[in-house]
Design a protein around this nucleic acid. Structure first.
Lengths: 206, 206
DNA sequence: TAAAATCCGGGATGAACGTCCCGCTTTTCC
DNA sequence: GGAAAAGCGGGACGTTCATCCCGGATTTTA
């Protein structure tokens, strides 16, 4: 699993969901360790990207590498477990926006939310940008379909005439990655908002 | 590291330039091999990205790995040698555009050129995306300062009122990376042009 | 053409990681 | 309280690479 990080995603998340159910029956110390690993990994991946070795995560969590790989048989599985929680929150936000706002506004706001999310989370940005991980399939099985929400919001915004009708989902995704690639994205909020405004104004119907 | 030949550490590309000068005095077979490696590497990196192992490049070039690492002591050095040629061409194009077109048009055209370049060259796109290589410092010593040309064109376009005055160079670079990240960038030219038009319209003064 | 300079091939080396395994410890359950 | 079950630590192993090295081949030189 060295070079092609997160390449094959078919059916992975459903397995994860299964693992989540079984987690209830873990021994007390195991449950504690699992939670600690998850927390540390989320923090480390967000701050330093997916390149951080498992050994390092284990070290910072104060456990052995075996403990990590027992709970998460693969580095990929570990990151999926982290993403799952995050995606759940984001899809919920998308649904709230879709229900309560004008379609165009909902789309632009969700877009901005996703950009901010990735800009302050290096691991997520890498996952989204990476030639491996695919937002489009991840989380679908678990019911947290960010890609689907974004597609829906885009279609609604186009229907309402707020977004250029020739824009496609892939365009939006690429632009999202670009915004997240902004240097100092996590620290320079003004720059991030500026680039978002540039892109959104480009997406708007003239 | 091959110490005796590449001792000048004043800058990566000046070291390269030195190597280029010395290349004239190489033995005939060495010169031939060097050229073949360079050509194969350019092709392979463009098609498959920078992740391709040196061994693989040596194999496809029909030489041993030692031959590659003797001519290019580092993988980075190899890719710099490739970039150098490409950057030379791009800066020339930039200068031509700057001289013959209206500032706004020159900027947008050069931007589009860079995006197309990266979209059809996976290695270049990866390099630009910041996976270990920095457009902003690369080539400056050798006189092929793409970053500088882009900055200049941006400033001129803003001066002429064609581009939003609050846009910064970093924004442009990030947007460029995003456009290049478009799936099927190399194959779907229509999609590429569409995303470029979106971004450019966002950059334009309202 | 033969010695000398130069270069070649590709195996050796070493570092970085992900994953697996097993002897020992902690928890659980009766 | 004690035995069985579950989990732990961290070293071992297998891979993947970039880079180095050296015996031998090739080119240059005189």
């Amino acid at each position: 699993m060295n070079v092609p990080l997160f390449q094959d995603y078919s059916g992975r998340l459903s397995r994860l969901a299964m693992e989540e159910c079984v987690a209830r029956e873990l021994r007390a110390d195991a449950r504690r360790n699992r939670a600690r690993v998850l927390a540390v990994a989320a923090e480390v991946f967000a701050a330093e990207g997916l390149g951080v070795p498992i050994h390092e995560i284990a070290r910072r969590a104060g456990v052995g590498t075996g403990t990590v790989s027992r709970h998460f048989p693969t580095k990929e599985a570990l990151y999926e477990a982290i993403l799952l929680e995050r995606m759940e929150r984001l899809t919920a936000e998308a649904d709230a926006m879709a229900a309560s706002e004008e379609p165009g506004e909902a789309f632009f706001r969700f877009f901005a939310t996703l950009v901010h999310e990735g800009a302050t989370n290096r691991g997520l940005a890498e996952a989204l940008a990476g030639a491996g991980y695919d937002l489009d399939t991840a989380g679908v099985e678990a019911g947290h379909d960010i890609s689907g929400r974004l597609r829906t919001l885009l279609a609604m915004a186009q229907q309402a005439g707020s977004v250029r009708s020739d824009v496609e989902y892939a365009d939006v995704k690429a632009l999202m990655v670009g915004c997240q690639a902004h240097p100092g994205g996590g620290t320079d909020k003004a720059a991030l908002d500026r680039i978002i405004s540039i892109v959104c104004s480009g997406l708007r119907t003239p």
